[in-house]
Amino acid sequence: MGRLLKIYMPFASNELKRQLAYRGAFYLFIITSLFSSFISYYLWMAVYGSSGQGVLGGLTQNEMVVYIFMVYVTSSIVTVSLSTWVSDDVVQGTVAMNLIKPIDYRLSLIAKALGRVSFQFLAPAVFVWIGLEIYKVTVLDMAPVSVMGVVLYLFSSGMSFLLFVLFDFCFGMIAFFTTYIFGLRMVKEALLGFLTGQLIPISFFPEAVQRVFGFLPFSSMIYTPVMIYLGKYTGRTLAFMLLRQGIWVLALYGLGSLIWKMVTKRLVVLGG
């Protein structure tokens, strides 16, 4: 384990350093992504205001505020476009350079993703989070999150991260067959917006749809940790949710290994 860390940590720290080198682009990204959180904030406030009901889809107006911004924090911790790296590697043929080293391609990508996520978490997700807690207590008059809540949330987010990168690795494998996956990535992002609960909490959907979503791995990526943070899951439900995340991590890990084996059999390296 220690040896594994020693080999793959450089990939993480390397990505962190790279992000620091190109921070201009990254701050621009932060502003635009926070912007969309505020849009969804005003939208939901209007929805609650006009509905005349205190609780929609199981969430009060104040919980909705927490939901919106915790989705932002969670997606900073969880989402990394690993498939973009895979498709770049395929298009530019650099995947060959990864294969001549005694390393596992997937693990190196996950380590790199960890580096990216640490940066996203430090700047600015953690500040948004702290700001949200302060706002919650002072303005919304809600109780601050418990230590146990934070621990459970971080644990579940960690699982979500693994789930997401393992899924995106499988998705990125498509690039080996089609070379370009830009269009597919757009489709994937649009679908994930719904399926992960990023746009609309899954509890807003009809019962039958919720059941289907529950069966898919995507709701475990963002919806689950945010609901845990909100304290919506307790006792056996909580254990079940965490277990479901764990099972999906294992399943996607297995699937990824299988696809990778297939891919390396028919790999074609582009360009020279």
Binding site: A96, L99, I100, L267, V268
Partner: peptide, 9 residues
Amino acid sequence: IKMMTGILT
């Protein structure tokens, strides 16, 4: 070369 390095099967 790529076959000898294990990149290609």
